[in-house]
Design a protein around this nucleic acid. Sequence first.
DNA 1: AATGAATGAGTTTTCATTCAT
DNA 2: AATGAATGAAAACTCATTCAT
Lengths: 202, 202, 202, 202
Amino acid sequence: MPRISAERMQDREDSLLAAAREVFACKGYEAAAVSDVARVAGVSDGLVYRYFGSKRDLLLAVLDSFYSRIIDDLERAVSLSASFEQRVATLVHKHVERFVDDMALCRLFIVEVRNFDEYVGSETHELNRRYTSILMRILADGRAEGRVAGDIDDRLVRDMMFGGIEHVAWRHILAGHPIDVERVAGQITRLLLGGISTSRAS
Amino acid sequence: MPRISAERMQDREDSLLAAAREVFACKGYEAAAVSDVARVAGVSDGLVYRYFGSKRDLLLAVLDSFYSRIIDDLERAVSLSASFEQRVATLVHKHVERFVDDMALCRLFIVEVRNFDEYVGSETHELNRRYTSILMRILADGRAEGRVAGDIDDRLVRDMMFGGIEHVAWRHILAGHPIDVERVAGQITRLLLGGISTSRAS
Amino acid sequence: MPRISAERMQDREDSLLAAAREVFACKGYEAAAVSDVARVAGVSDGLVYRYFGSKRDLLLAVLDSFYSRIIDDLERAVSLSASFEQRVATLVHKHVERFVDDMALCRLFIVEVRNFDEYVGSETHELNRRYTSILMRILADGRAEGRVAGDIDDRLVRDMMFGGIEHVAWRHILAGHPIDVERVAGQITRLLLGGISTSRAS
Amino acid sequence: MPRISAERMQDREDSLLAAAREVFACKGYEAAAVSDVARVAGVSDGLVYRYFGSKRDLLLAVLDSFYSRIIDDLERAVSLSASFEQRVATLVHKHVERFVDDMALCRLFIVEVRNFDEYVGSETHELNRRYTSILMRILADGRAEGRVAGDIDDRLVRDMMFGGIEHVAWRHILAGHPIDVERVAGQITRLLLGGISTSRAS
DNA sequence: AATGAATGAGTTTTCATTCAT
DNA sequence: AATGAATGAAAACTCATTCAT
């Protein structure tokens, strides 16, 4: 017979998640201690392990909840755009904005999770796919509309876009000067859509 | 354990560097222990500190030696290319190849060094700048030749290219299927030069 | 190893303190390892750091608890003495006795703490002041009663007394022959009060 | 067949001793590394062990050479004083001055050597005895001249004097204000000779 | 005689995780 | 269900000392 209701358990899990997000974002995964998370959440160390199997699980849960949130947000924004070019522009804009707003969590994902063996096949991986699949659908639709050059591999575009934006955002963040999201996103969009060359490229 | 003569100190340093490269590449920086490196190099723990001041120094030395090697290689390759487009193609090709050949080291740089405070201003940062400056020169020359669209920010191109290739390479590596360097580099080059759109973009 | 209830935390702290006192007294601060203390206390190494932030903190806690104990004792003894001379005699007697009873801790204070930069301004320093202030009050009162020569600097007396007794005690302890506290304290008192000379000194 | 002459060996030993004096004085015994000494002396680590059996031996040698120097100096100064009181005054003055001039070495002796088991019976102990015996002779002579109160134990006087001066000097040094040697020595001398009391003490 | 590379034991401290209460 | 005291296994780094050269 449970002493606390399911509702209460959910609240606890949420507050632990929030605490973990804060602590991991602030100190990074390695430097964060489970007891930091417990303290911030206002519970005992031991209780953390009733809700999450390990420190690693906690990290993944933080990132998964982050992804759930941003996927919905991105989908909603993209759905409001009319043309292919607008949808790309919106996605680029939102993604750049994501780096600006949630730098620490993006970094957490890039540095602590994405590169590890366990990543492939994980829930986090699946969520990342769902996030990027929003672009894949835009590209498929754009191709159907004849807006995408025929010899382009969509996965390549996806990687170039997300990889590129990651670097651009990082450069600004490391350099310490704030990103003018509007301008940067506009430039990236133009580059992606139109390329570097003055003439049609080979 | 043989005591080595003065003239073999360089060998020792090299073998420590090689051991560190292997261990860091395999386990990542945090997970690797200095004693792992020592064991692989066949020396005592303490000796590592005779050659490298700290675990961190060892990491940076590994990356610096890596950079020194690949900068020359890239410069030579690029210098052999005639046109702007060829030079870009060569650089993309070489960079993709680099990820294929030295995935672990690229990852080490990206994950363990690039995102840390101490990075800016370090020797490694300088080497990274030299590496990327090869592209910057290509772009500047291309612009002088009128091959680059006027409204393009070179640093943006740099980030999109290196960031994009990083993700492309990663996808293949994570998925476990080998990269057809020729084909992938070609596609990336085309995308960068010509963009996604069928017509001139926005 | 039994897990203790909350109400027994104090006991744990006390037993750690006792273990540290023993180990430090026996081996000195530098030569003592935290794991020695843990072993003597019958706990794990890590637990020491739950109660004391560092090895240094442990040392200071040992000395502070020592001082707390002896200050009360000295104050009580002195307060029972009627005249200036008696109070000085009592203090000397008690102080010599202290060296005899707690040689190792006195030595710990003198050797490991008193001469270090961090000492000034520390809790231990404050306790030491309280201890020595007992003598300062005796001297001030004695001066008010006209029992102290006018040109004497009280701080000088304090240093001569404590420094002198320290050496006297040390000599006996090093030589290995027990101190006749009564006799030695009497001699010291006489010397301090009356000086060496047969006639009034220069 | 020795490759270097006995003379050269002596020079080496002297320069090692000087280097050790400097390093120990500056950093303390524990914090000083043998290789620091070697570097300062301009020789290899290994060579230190040809001249001194261990780091400890090096410390003792430093202190022994220090004692040899100051013993002569003190003896000479005292021999120039005419009366008992003058001789005491000179000795006090010289001893206070010693603390001022050679604070670090005094501290080294007090903290690192005097309190250790091996001290009793060591060369250093013997030198310390010779140093303090200068006072013992003064007292014996003073007693013969009737200048010393009959019931005084000379060893007690010795301890009170050296212990007291040690504390006085230390207080000034810790507090950071320079000692007015003349004044302080004068006060100490007066206190030792005449005592605290306004009247002849019990 | 001299070097200095090499050793390897030893130290403090941290923390994820467990489990008696 | 909740606690938080306790564990114990690392792990980075230092250095006195040795000994092949």
